[in-house]
Structure formats: structure tokens, C-alpha cells
Amino acid sequence: MHIVVCIKQVPDSAQIRVHPVTNTIMRQGVPTIINPYDLFALEEALRLRDKVGGEVTVLTMGPPMAEDALRKALGIGANRGVLLTDRFFAGSDTLATSFALAQAVRKIGETWGAPEVVFTGKQTIDGDTAQVGPGIARRLGLNQLTYVAAINAIDLEAGTIAVARRAEGGVQELSTKLPALITMLEGTNEIRRGTVPDVLRAARAKIEVWNAAAAGITEVGMCGLRGSPTVVKRVFAPTPRAAKAEQVEAKDRPYEAVAEDVMERIFAAQPAMEAELMRTAAGY
């Protein structure tokens, strides 16, 4: 079985400093880490491989120094690392990123065998969009399972996978046909520590470094800034609201009374809402 895990190297947000004078983020000297959400994807991929056999390829798109993230993933136990790096990719939004990564996954498939499962983390800590995984799935025509909390079963013969997916209001048990893309939820497993042979192999491993051409990407207009319709107009810190939150005492009171209290306060602040609700209620 072949599994591809997409990871991203991100600045360690815990160690980012804001320049006291210019208020800009000081990137110099800020260490980078593997996007923490991606580690759950990597661990789940390794567990799957350990169970049914096969290989795990880690893929990242980024600057040349993103090689460190791949090497770290190899030290945790992945079999191979592919770095997609090219100035054409600079400034990619989620659309352009998923395009480039999808092409690279395709190329990985041609080179080492088509993956049955592609993993990504739930989202990144520096973008928070959660769009790249689904974007890759769509472009490659993979079934997608997002926010997966556990993989319950995989049947390579039948070509099916069954997972538990965290959804609003509960857990869904889903199964789908392979190949599939899974975005893994945080807190679902614990990343392992590579063994001595793992880290020695990682330190010496040759990372596959692909530019756009090597990844078989010819439409560079779909990549980087040119392929990115998203425009960041402004970045700002939200101003805290002036009004203080109100508190309603709930301890040792019947919940109807508490609810009534809450509604009363809301309606006091939003009389129009009350009127609207009354009208709606009258319609039933």
C-alpha cells in the first residue's frame, strides 16, 4: 500500500516575536516546525503502513529549507520525502497550493505507484483555512473524508476504508471506496519517536527535490501569485469590544429559569429581535 502525507513547514507560533517598535512579525531566528496538525496525519499514516505494509511518502511544498521538515518526518519513520520547490510557487493561496500539490501527488503516483490514501492535517496553524486537503481531493477525484478522528478498518482487497468522523453534534461512522483523501483531526493519536535506525537513515536520506517541471506542472499560470485569486487586503488585530459580557447565575437554579433570564437580557438589548421572533412564533 502506498500512502502520501502532505505536510507544511510553519513558523513555530509559540516563538514568534513581534518587533516592539515596528509591530511587524520578526521571522529572523524563529524556528520552524511541522504544522502540528500534520503530525496526526503522519502518525495515522505510519500506523496504517505498519498494519498492512507498504510505504509512506511525505510531500511538502515550500522554500528549500522546508527540506528540514521532510527530514524530520523521515526521522519519525516515513519512507521517502518529496520537496516541491520553485519560485513559481511563491505567493500561492489555497487554490494554487492544492493545484501544485495535486500535480505532485499524481507524479508521485506515476513514480512509485498510485497512493491508496492521501493524508493531510485538518488545517495549518498559519493559514487556518482547511481548504487544501479537500482541494487536492477534488482535483484528483479522490473520495474525501475530513475531520477524521479514527480509522476503523481498511480493506485493500475490497478497496474500502471505514472511519469515524467528528461532525457537529456527534461522530459519524463513514466508509468509502479507495483511493481516498483523509484530513486528520488533532488529538487523535500521539506522534511516535523515531528509532535510532530511523533518525540515522533520515540524516543521510536523499530528499527528492522537484521544481514545477519535474513535478510535471506545465501550467505555471495556475501556480503561485498568478494562480491565486485570493487577495489579502489588510491584516489587523481585532479591537476588543467595549461592552463587558453579562453573566447569568446558573448554579442551583432550574434551567427554565436560567433560560428565561438569558432571553430576557437578550431581548432587552435587542428589542427588534424579540418582535421578529414573536411574529415568527405567531405564524406556527
Binding site: R193, G194, T195, V196, D198, V199
Partner: peptide, 9 residues
């Protein structure tokens, strides 16, 4: 010996 599994070096 290190704090990793996989034997001494």
C-alpha cells in the same frame, strides 16, 4: 546509549 529505541550506537 540514547533515549531512542533501536539500540546503542
Amino acid at each position: 546509549l540514547t533515549d531512542r529505541h533501536g539500540g546503542p550506537i
